[in-house]
Amino acid sequence: MTTTAIAITCTVNGVKVERTVEVRRTLAQFLREDLSLTGTKVSCDVQICGACTVLVDGQPVSSCTHLAVDVDRSAVTTVEGLASEGRLHPLQQAFVEQMALQCGFCTPGFLMMAKALLDENPDPSREQIIEYLDGNLCRCTGYAPIVAAVEQAARVLGPAGGDSNA
């Protein structure tokens, strides 16, 4: 059946969401405009910069070039889903302590990409962190504090990796 809008059901940061979405709507538009989750940023809009990174079923995607209808029956995690019970996630805490942000526009993307890395590999080497994050661009901080923050978060999280919010 040819269709230009589809009813979807998904969870976003653990909350069930049911919407009818135009097929051309990107996941970034859906999150920011339909759900008012503006933590996810759009910068290049052509999936080069990584600012719009969110997790779909635990895997990182560029929400600017991902159709919203493709998250039907999936679990989406955005930067708003990292902190719990008023406490920053260890990655967020490490970014603050390491001064790994200035303007902060790229930060949600870096956090979600780093979350994906630590979920998959709780004890990455510095080289692995750099390689995993090399598709994310920051234009003010420089990358060394960001890498240091991910290393710190990995130490804090321990073997449980990014799956834990403790």
Partner: peptide
């Protein structure tokens, strides 16, 4: 090592 992890997912 194709692209980056987002490209590999999608």
């Amino acid at each position: 090592r194709v692209g980056n992890a987002r490209v590999r997912t999608q």
